[in-house]
Amino acid sequence: MRLEPIPNPTLGRRLGPPAAALGVTVLFAMALAWVAGADPLAVLGLIVKGAVGSKFALLETLNRATPLIFTGLAVAVAFRAKLWNIGAEAQLYLGAVVTVLLGTGALSWPAPALLPVLGLAAALAGALTLLGPAWAKTRLGVDEVVTTLLLNFIVLLFVSYLLEGPMKDPMGMGWPKSRRLIAEARLPRIVEGLRLHWGFALALIAAVLVWLVQTRTTFGYAMRAVGHNARAARFAGIPVTSVTLATALLSGSLAGLAGFSEVAGLKGNLTLDLSPGFGYTGIIVAMLALLHPLGVVVAALFVAGIFVGADSMSRAAEVPSYIADMLLASALLLVVLALPFTRFRLRWR
């Protein structure tokens, strides 16, 4: 068995395999629903209805998509340069910590001055979190997959310490949670009366900016070159080490912004369940988007819709909401499998 390149793949050839992958994912979801003893079509219907079936559902999906756009961008930017950042979870939490640190009264400025500072500080916190592993990768040859993964555990324990110690809300009835942000530190709603905050708009802007950087700047070109072939890039005079470090800063700050947006836009304080794995789900988002920054927005909406829809479905039908996680993990693997078929054909010889 081997793969044979196709010289000029047609549009159908390029879109067919990923579409087939999503089709198979839907069939797989129906099979799972059937295993769980429910009516497959009804379950699918309930998921769609729960995701986009009402104004409330739609807003819930948009809210859930917001952090996923940020973490998806963080992963997409890093993976494009072959920097395996699996630590978006840690970067998100430290972004959130800094937001709470500065936003609970330490800086009592008016909102137009405070919010940008909080956002920048959170981005910086996320960026610095990834800088360590990226530095160890470029300088010492330490594999960043394991270091970023292990940092997730360390940072979560650190946040747990903060929430039970120095950052604990004295009025929190003993729960490990931080004090609430002051009113000036809260991201306002985009439209008064609709439960959707400016974090969503910020995420969309970030996606467009990342896209512009990747396609319209020398730095973006260098990032892609390093990811494509680091040796060739170095030979062509691209400073691979600094490009990798700069990529880490960009990726980490995007994940840090996810923490800022969740705390300042949605929750208002920091708890240990701020992120139900947004950092890890960001990997799925980025891969489903084929690492394209604008695709990340679409993929994040899709993934958020599946999660929100499955939550709502599991309340109505006797199917565990973990069906969403299974569906998305299999979608990830199937899309990755489908990609070579857009450029190669299989030869059984």
Partner: peptide, 27 residues
């Protein structure tokens, strides 16, 4: 045989295996 990215596939397998376990447990 397909030579896909070992990073991405590995993480995908971890996510799928964990989700499959939790799903089965709840069922």
């Amino acid at each position: 045989p397909f030579g896909l990215s070992q990073h991405v596939v590995g993480l995908g397998v971890t996510l799928l295996a964990t989700a499959a376990t939790y799903f089965t447990y709840r069922l």
